[in-house]
Design a protein around this nucleic acid. Structure first.
Length: 107
DNA sequence: CTCTTGACTGAGG
DNA sequence: GCCTCAGCCAAGA
């Protein structure tokens, strides 16, 4: 995996997020062995567009849609999540523990 | 090379 | 449980 950059690794993990599930930046970072670089995960998502990466399934540890402003600047992110059966209210994922997907356990 | 920015997280009050 | 502070690390100017 050394051939892949940090960003690419993040994309690889994000792509494996199952439908109707979400995960946190920290979970991905931890799986990559860079638990201290959770911010980089989100930062990497800036280039997620065009890379088939479901960035809308990645939220912070609170289940809050902190990155919704980076999508369309509107409630697009919430709409996408709700379309997958994920209940979202006021930029926050409901039943976060139920829809949470841990990459370290799934991969 | 140095400084700033940021889709974060954990610890402390 | 919420708010605030500090640490972390990569990319861009």
């Amino acid at each position: 995996m050394e051939t892949l950059n940090f960003f690419d690794k993040v994309y690889e993990v994000a792509k494996q997020i199952p439908y109707g599930k979400v995960t946190s930046y920290g979970a991905i970072a931890k799986y990559l062995g860079a638990s201290r670089s959770a911010r980089m995960v989100g930062y990497a998502m800036n280039g997620s567009v065009g890379k088939d990466v479901p960035a809308h399934r990645v939220v912070n540890r609170k289940g809050l849609l902190t990155g919704k402003h980076h999508f369309d600047g509107t409630n697009l992110m919430q709409q996408l999540l709700e379309s997958e059966g994920i209940e979202v209210k006021d930029n926050q994922i409901q039943n976060f523990e139920k829809v949470f997907w841990d990459p370290s356990k799934a991969i």
